[in-house]
């Protein structure tokens, strides 16, 4: 065989070439999606869905399936929106709710994170609080509104209390499941590198648990927003400033169906917008750096 009499150095260069070839052949190819394809596969389908819903709505109105005050024309909803825009209250209404929602979410983050850490790492706390946290997740936070109103009155504090009770369990549970799913191999590798105790948590455990934590944050935001809307709808008072929930409730008392539909659409829109602007990119980033997100 030819290889047996080669000298050490020529085997070395031959080997380096072989290795470079193997590396090139086995490295997964990363392809960037062109913007045209993004437009076609990501933007077009939801736009189509919205157009279809509007068209069906319009058809139902034209077919007179029910009275106008129950199912107004889409243009009536558009007029309500225009009115809000023209008298300058549109952004005030949205901002009142969004600022409450975000502030409440941040507070839930500040409480849920250490709580999740404690439940994940301290067996006693886990046995005591773990089942309660999971149970609270399935309790609709609307159920807390009456209690919050009796304790705190119809105030901002009651709103925040309801948000916290809705979002803290999600965030804490997300962190717990994130930590539970860390592969033991990472912890072992970390220990051999000298990452033990606090350094182990900082450099290995927490980064490894990040995907579960971010999923918890995403769900926590959805719960915050839902809880807040429930609270605003039930505990509405003129002293509190006009948020989306109150706007919806006011439209109901006025039997203003276009206003009711506009309220629902705005609540849905804001929830989706915040998710798309903040949480989905965060989640995608975390998953993509780990090679966990398919490039779809």
């Amino acid at each position: 065989m030819a290889g047996t009499d080669t000298t050490g150095t020529s085997t070395g260069t031959e080997l380096a070439g072989l290795e470079a070839g193997l590396d090139a052949l086995e490295t997964p190819l990363v392809r960037r999606t062109p913007w045209r394809e993004v437009l076609w596969r990501k933007v077009l389908p939801p736009v189509t869905a919205v157009i279809v819903v509007l068209a069906v709505w319009k058809l139902l109105v034209l077919a007179h399936v029910t009275d106008d005050y129950k199912l107004p024309d889409p243009s009536a909803v558009w007029h309500s929106l225009r009115e809000l825009w023209l008298n300058g209250t549109l952004f005030d209404i949205i901002w009142t709710s969004v600022s409450r929602g975000l502030l409440g979410f941040l507070a839930a983050l500040a409480i849920g994170t250490p709580l999740g850490l404690l439940v994940a790492r301290v067996p006693f706390v886990r046995a005591a609080l773990g089942p309660v946290l999971s149970g609270l997740q399935s309790l609709p936070s609307v159920a807390w509104v009456p209690a919050a109103v009796i304790w705190l009155g119809i105030t901002d504090a009651a709103m925040y209390a309801v948000i916290l009770l809705g979002a803290v369990p999600s965030i804490a549970n997300g962190l717990v499941s994130g930590i539970d799913q860390v592969p033991p191999l990472y912890l072992r590798a970390g220990r051999t590198l000298g990452a033990t105790g606090v350094r182990g948590a900082r450099y290995v455990l927490l980064p490894a648990a990040l995907p579960g934590y971010v999923a918890g944050l995403k769900q926590g935001w959805a719960f915050s927003w839902r809880s807040l809307m429930a609270a605003e709808l039930i505990a509405s008072s003129p002293d509190l400033g006009l948020g989306l929930g109150q706007y919806l409730e006011n439209a109901r008392t006025d039997s203003d169906m276009p206003g009711v539909l506009l309220g629902i659409i705005m609540i849905l829109f804001v929830g989706i917008a915040i998710d798309l602007a903040v949480f989905s990119p965060l989640e995608r980033r975390v998953l993509r750096t780990r090679g966990l997100a398919a490039g779809r």
Binding site: L22, E26, P28, G291
Partner: peptide, 10 residues
Amino acid sequence: KRVHELSGGM
């Protein structure tokens, strides 16, 4: 390079 961008040998 990220870990998932490397082959098994790399």
